[in-house]
Amino acid sequence: MRYVDKTVVGLSIAFVVLLFADFFMAEWMRFIGLQSLARGAVALGLLVLWRTGLVSFGHALYFGIGAYAAAMLTLVGYHDAFFLVLAGTLASGLLAFLLGFLLRRYRAIFFALLNMAFSMILYGVIVKTEELGSTDGFSVLTPTFLGYAPQGEAVQTTLFLFTLVFTYIVTVGVHLYLKTTLGGMSMAVRENEIRVEYLGYSAEKVIHVKYVFSGLVAGFGGAIMALAIGQVDPDSMANWNVSGEFVFITILSGIGNVGATYIGALVFELIRTYAFEYAPQVWQFILGGSLLAIIMFLPDGIWSLIDRLRKSEG
């Protein structure tokens, strides 16, 4: 092919590097890596919406549904990671499809807040459901991988490998989707919906499709997270500040490139982990402070730094 997609090349290189790194990584690195991939996937979903000019303050809803769907299936005896993640992803996608009929009518802050309202309903339901452990949540048993049941450290290694493969597929998939006419219509809807309608296409339909995409990947991220930390609970999976963190990661990454969301998620995870470990009294202070710094001084996110570097080289 004459035309080489740099983003796909970049993602592929990162994929192969991480694939090998998996066998040498320390356990804590793998743990942070897994969480970054999971949160990065949700941020990827937000990126898809953000390019359309929409921000959701409630994507913990889909993250939570993905996580709880996967976790609940383990309660009834399903343990295969492939099945659990697929189920979590589809459950979120289905919910996004249904709610999409309502949400596609909203824009700006109303879209953001209506999403938050729905996510808080989920939060309320989980907190009030004793069977799901209420505020404590419940543990998720170690998954199997198509019959292979790893033990000890092999559990995380395999899970990381598994996550990496699927994150790669999902991310390249989203990237290619954004290059299609339907995906590219993000720009058109964000810039001028009236023109889109008068060119003969429904802006709401464009938004609906994007919303389902974002729900699917957020559900994927949630299911991965449930398996990665072996536990689900409403406060770290479905509460409003979780949604805020996803938006934070998206700001951090910028919406310039699909791969950037994972870098953003990793930076977020590092800030959070280290702030929590070394300054437990002020970790929120550090988190909020870095978010403010990015908003003020790096408005287009980390990706704009990379972009700037590339331009100065070229």
């Binding site: 921000v55 303050f57 700006a108 802050i109 953001a112 805020g244 938006v247 934070f248 700001i251 009294q281 002020v282 970790w283 929120q284 202070f285 988190l287 909020g288 402070g289 978010l291 403010l292 908003i295 408005p299």
Partner: peptide
């Protein structure tokens, strides 16, 4: 700036003030 960005800035400030 964009209204979402301002909301986020106040969210960041909220986190700071919590601590």
């Amino acid at each position: 700036r964009d209204e979402h960005i301002i909301v986020l800035a106040t969210f960041a400030m909220f986190l700071v003030l919590e601590d």
